[in-house]
Design a binder for these strands. Sequence first.
DNA 1: AGATGAATAAAACATTTGTTTGAAACAGTC
DNA 2: GACTGTTTCAAACAAATGTTTTATTCATCT
Lengths: 225, 225
Amino acid sequence: MTKLLPTKERIIDIAGDIFGREGFQSATIRKIAEAADANIASINYHFRDKDGLYRAVLEDIFSRTFQKFPAVPLPGNPTDPEERLYVFIHAMFQRFLSHEGWGGFSGRGKLIAREFLDPTPAFEDVVETYIKPQKNILSSILSDLSEGKMDKDRMISCAVSIIGQCVYYAFAGPFIQRIAGNFNINEENLDFLSDHVFQFSLGGIRKIINDAIENNSLTHQEKHS
Amino acid sequence: MTKLLPTKERIIDIAGDIFGREGFQSATIRKIAEAADANIASINYHFRDKDGLYRAVLEDIFSRTFQKFPAVPLPGNPTDPEERLYVFIHAMFQRFLSHEGWGGFSGRGKLIAREFLDPTPAFEDVVETYIKPQKNILSSILSDLSEGKMDKDRMISCAVSIIGQCVYYAFAGPFIQRIAGNFNINEENLDFLSDHVFQFSLGGIRKIINDAIENNSLTHQEKHS
DNA sequence: AGATGAATAAAACATTTGTTTGAAACAGTC
DNA sequence: GACTGTTTCAAACAAATGTTTTATTCATCT
């Protein structure tokens, strides 16, 4: 058997798959070593221990994907807030679904989904470096869109609503398919999904803004009581 | 030490907590047995094996919560589709966040989140019994709202957008707090969250319908190219 | 060619963990 | 009060899994 990559990189590569599919606990270093065609001890040699390997995998996943689909807007990107919102959503789906990104749920995506549930110490660093900048970008877009007509809580709520859609589409793919029959969520309809989430969110944001203008304190029940 | 419940129920109760917090693998039967003040062997005695215990816990969680917050609309519930949408969303948040439901992310909610990632055979039954009816209810609401002006794919997309928001709010609670500072997601602001998701989604749905009417085939890029 | 340090290999080690066993305690019945 | 079936308990068992050890191979430089 030919080994195209040096052992260390081969291990990181395979480990990403296996950690993703099976989770940290179930992914034994023996499985990883065998799949990477490497010796068990070489994992400890290169990464100190299983935790060290996982840390390396996580860092690798984020650094590569955010290099490919950067968080910082490129020069020449649109300045119109609506356009920027579309670009933001589209980039998010690219990272989640595209082959060059996390390859959807069945690939690395699952590993990241797990980090949402049980963040490891390694994920803390990732949040600071890669995810928090995203939050600032979205905040500025929403701020421009609302022109000061939304309070902070509503703005956060809208941000969560937008992110929530993307994340759910990306992570609950197999589940959605199980419930909704032939509704495919993968790289091929990345554009359709981006477009839907964009239009849906735009409608939602506008409604929240309008409601805030005409009546910014009453809840649904109060209005109908 | 006094034991308020018989051993079997005490084990199910505690096991829900521990499975939720630590996941199936990390939740050892020794931890569970100790926390439930029961012998290790009694778990195997009552539930055959660890899988059997997990199955019992899952069934218990869903049956109790859906009995408390049923999926089937009660007689006397509103017939107006917008009102029905609000009720649907509110019930979902109740199940997710309320103490009598899954108690939010830190409680049983996490266990269910895990099932989205790695469905166990036991979850298949739960999907059929408890979750699929939900899908039919939401479908009928969206169908009434759109009055035949949305195709099937758009309707599913809207459904996913709505569910996605609720699920993300419920499951990513700690994560959101980490990113967005003091934005609390728990039982106390259940009404605020329901109201936001309702308004946001209503705006989104209306926009999707309008777009579908005036131009039901072009994507965002095509429209702007 | 020889020396040096990095990388790999096979085996052994120490723990953890799900499960089983056989005896003891308990509850209800005749 | 003896009998029977159920439940609990402590201990043992067997398999798995992360880690370490020791030896060997490989590459690089002098």
